[in-house]
Design a protein around this nucleic acid. Structure first.
Length: 744
RNA sequence: GGGCGCUUAGCUCAGUUGGUAGAGCAUCUGCCUUACAAGCAGGAGGUCAUAGGUUCGAGCCCUAUAGCGCCCACCA
């Protein structure tokens, strides 16, 4: 017997244990078709907020749907404990910077800290009813995943897609590491636009350059004007004298200079921005690198050496003013590139870095994108946009401590890289020694270990490889090439999706997955993203589960439309609470009338029963169509709508027959019983995608023909009740009119 | 500046081959009717952002405009 009131906290715990003990969500090879999901390993950088719950739950619902359609679900969970986010978390907890703690100790702390948080994450996701097989979960920094990341690196190196080169790279002075273009975030800041007077050496002609970065004056290697610029093109070929710095540089012409921007004259510094790098390469200009790696002016620069960048800016403006070289200073608001992890402005640095070739294979990456089905479809253009606009090869080395080490040593004499053998992986070059005894190039017998580690994305982009146990004897390569589905929010299309496609293409020459499903964000308020720094996530997921139950939180998550942002709303939770409660109550009612029921073949349905069966069949057809398009929210929407109609109209009509067979007839009663028995079963199945707990409780109490409702199979009805549907709909209209007049 | 999305009831949002505008919340009225007051029945509430166009017919298709949001480019 179902309890009078449903106690969610007690029942949810009961079924969690039951599913775990009976391995309901276990992945085992069998003869069923595999449906595999590449779900984002959440970054282990502190607490999970309600935004995580939203997108992960939507994916989870799809896993449940596919399971109910008879697929063998491969759905492993992962944790991304790699790289900077973990390091920053540890630095915050310890109140110290990584270099103050020391490499070895710091790595140990990173492992301990991420383990601690992962346990919390796992508990929360379990409580939400995530139907993953925890036995196959992974973390991005562990011996087995390090091995795969290193093997991936070596494979790319062998195939010639990976190179080590001294090259300008984006540099973060806060995190003291190079970063990738994809890690940039634009920010609007207030600064000044400084109009500085220069002179030509040849004839002392004055001209003005406007700059936001006067501290780069010592790094000027050339001045550019547009050859079409009639006001200034006579300067081309002359020499410019840099004020205060007292250095002379050539004036050249290039059509990339915008005539109407600033004064139309540009100083080219190595390096202030990306155009500088382009010109530096194009015209083979000299290199004047004036910054140190911790954000100061290099000691070699006269007068300004040792100053922080912003101090130098202030100082140089003062000096320019003192010399009468500044025409005017304008207040300016403009956008700068910052590092998304710390929010600090990025600079450019020149050092040896590992890069993965992007620029030579853009067309292939576009082609891969075309082979993938995007949900919603318009997200495909976000991907194309990014690939078409990428301007750099992918820099994957980071001058940090915690992460996947490069399996590389260098010859002390000639710098030749020595790579580890694939069969020796994982290796830590700081501890392990190369297998060769001397440099194959120069014969030197001493080596230096690579101290850099790989970028977070370089390792998280191998999640399909981790899932398929790439390079292992016992692997899933046969069933996971490609995987069925990747899910994530739109913000990481340019990183996680793109880099995974890059790697999959280089390793296997094919797409990593057939489908990509993009979820929206959760907004704290309209137009305001939830973010930890703002502290605007008012609701702790654990508290919400306690207050509302996991099923109800799942309802909220399930109402979101694909790719569309959602505002957190207690109203929606209330609506879910009512729906769950109604499912419980109607099940109690149906149970009451099934005590003497025996399921057998029966086709002599009353026409009202045919009406509701037909209506259900119609609804479920649409329901399945939505789910096939990954539109979880729309599926829930029509299911819910049907369900209220079932309760408010059909149950009210069938009541009398169920209560009073002496008046309405036994066969008529059986027809009603058969109908509610059949429909409740099917409704529970459909609802189990969204409410795995309460549906299991009712299923086990009323049907228990299977170990779990979650391992049953949805089999659509196949009636032809079109006539009855029409008649029934008319009948409902008449009833509704009667009620109306009764109420007047 | 480029790409994409959104704009429907006071609020949150559905509305998928073009065919009489929907739900929940809030509000008002009447009901403790033997599953459910966390409920039931009913009322009120909308120039579907704006302007054109296609069509017998447009919330839906096309064009333009505005506002909002996301991604990218823009450091002279």
């Amino acid at each position: 017997m179902l309890d009078k009131k449903y106690n969610a906290e007690e029942k949810e715990k009961k079924w969690l244990d039951y599913w775990k003990d009976n391995k309901i969500y276990e992945f085992k090879r069998n003869d069923k078709e595999v449906y595999s999901i590449d779900t984002p390993p959440p970054t282990v950088n502190g607490k999970i907020h309600i935004g995580h719950i939203f997108s992960y739950t939507q994916t989870e619902m799809l896993a449940r749907y596919k399971r109910l359609r008879g697929y063998n679900i491969f759905y492993p969970f992962g944790f991304d404990d790699n790289g900077l986010p973990s390091e920053r978390l540890v630095e915050k907890e310890q109140g110290k910077r990584a270099h103050e703690i020391g490499r070895e100790e710091f790595s140990k702390l990173c492992y301990e800290t991420t383990d601690k948080y992962e346990a919390n994450f796992q508990e929360l996701f379990s409580k939400m009813g995530v139907s993953t097989d925890w036995d196959i979960h992974y973390k991005t920094v562990s011996p087995s995943t390090i091995k795969i990341s290193q093997a991936s690196f070596l494979d790319l190196k062998e195939k010639g897609h990976c190179y080590h080169k001294e090259s300008p790279a984006l540099w973060c002075n806060e995190c003291l590491t190079s970063i990738a273009q994809a890690e940039l975030e634009t920010k609007t800041i207030k600064t000044t636009f400084n109009y500085v007077n220069f002179k030509t050496v040849e004839d002392n002609e004055e001209f003005t350059i406007a700059t936001t970065r006067p501290e780069l004056l010592p790094a000027i290697v050339c001045v550019f004007v547009n050859p079409e610029d009639e006001k200034h093109n006579h300067l081309i070929g002359k020499t410019a004298h840099i004020p205060v710095i007292d250095v002379e540089v050539p004036i050249m012409g290039d059509e990339k200079v915008a005539i109407d921007k600033g004064t139309g004259i540009v100083m080219c510094c190595t390096f202030g921005d990306q155009t500088d790098i382009e010109w530096w390469k194009k015209y083979k200009l000299p290199l004047k690198y004036i910054f140190t790696d911790n954000g100061r002016i290099a000691p070699s620069v006269p007068n300004y050496g040792g100053l922080k960048i912003k101090e130098a800016r202030k100082q140089i403006i003062e000096d320019l003013q003192a010399g009468g070289h500044i025409v005017k200073i304008e207040e300016l608001e403009h956008e700068v590139q910052t590092h998304e992890r710390c929010g600090k402005e990025v600079e450019y640095s020149v050092m040896k870095q590992w890069f993965i070739d992007i620029m030579n294979h853009k067309e292939d990456f576009i082609r891969m994108g075309n082979e993938i089905k995007w949900h919603p479809a318009y997200m495909h253009s976000r991907y194309d946009e990014w690939v078409n606009n990428v301007a750099w090869d992918w820099c994957i080395s980071r001058q940090r401590y915690f992460g996947v080490p490069f399996p590389v040593w260098y010859c002390k004499e000639c710098g030749e890289p020595i790579f580890a053998n694939k069969e020796d992986l994982p290796v830590n070059p700081l501890v392990d020694l190369p297998k060769v005894t001397k440099c194959p190039k120069c014969g030197c017998k001493e080596f230096e270990a690579e101290t850099d580690v790989m970028d977070t994305w370089a390792t998280s982009s191998v999640t399909p490889l981790i899932n398929m146990r790439y390079g292992e004897k016992e692997n899933y390569e046969d069933i996971l090439k490609p995987m069925s589905l990747r899910t994530n929010a739109s913000e990481i299309i340019r990183t996680w999706d793109f880099y995974t496609i890059v790697k999959s293409f280089y390793h296997f020459g094919q797409r990593p997955w057939d489908n990509v499903m993009i979820s929206g964000f959760v907004m704290a308020n309209k137009g305001e993203k939830i973010s930890k720094s703002k502290g605007n996530s008012k609701h702790e997921p654990m508290d919400l589960i306690k207050q509302y139950s996991a099923d109800v939180i799942r309802y909220w998550a399930g109402t979101g439309r694909l790719g569309t942002d959602i505002v957190f709303s207690e109203e929606t939770l209330l609506r879910g609470k009512k729906l769950v409660n109604k499912i419980w109550n109607v099940s109690k009612f149906i149970e009451m009338h099934l005590t003497d029921y025996e399921d057998k073949e029966f086709n002599n349905f009353e026409y009202v029963d045919k009406w509701i069966l037909g209506r259900f069949q119609e609804m479920e057809k649409q329901f399945i169509e939505y789910l096939e398009e990954y539109e979880v929210g729309l599926a829930l929407n029509i299911l819910e709508k049907f369900f209220w109609e079932f309760c408010d109209n059909y149950i009210e009509i069938v009541k009398h027959r169920l209560y009073r067979p002496e008046e309405f007839g036994n066969i008529q009663r059986y027809s009603g019983q058969k109908t509610v028995y059949t429909l409740l079963y099917k409704l529970l199945q459909d609802f189990s995608i969204f409410f795995p707990f309460i549906t299991e409780e009712i299923f086990q109490e009323l049907y228990h023909n299977n170990a779990s409702i979650h391992t049953t199979e949805i089999k659509p009805l196949d009636y032809n009740f079109n006539k009855e549907i029409e008649l029934g709909n008319q009948m409902i209209e008449i009833i509704s009119q009667a009620r109306r007049s009764k109420n007047k």
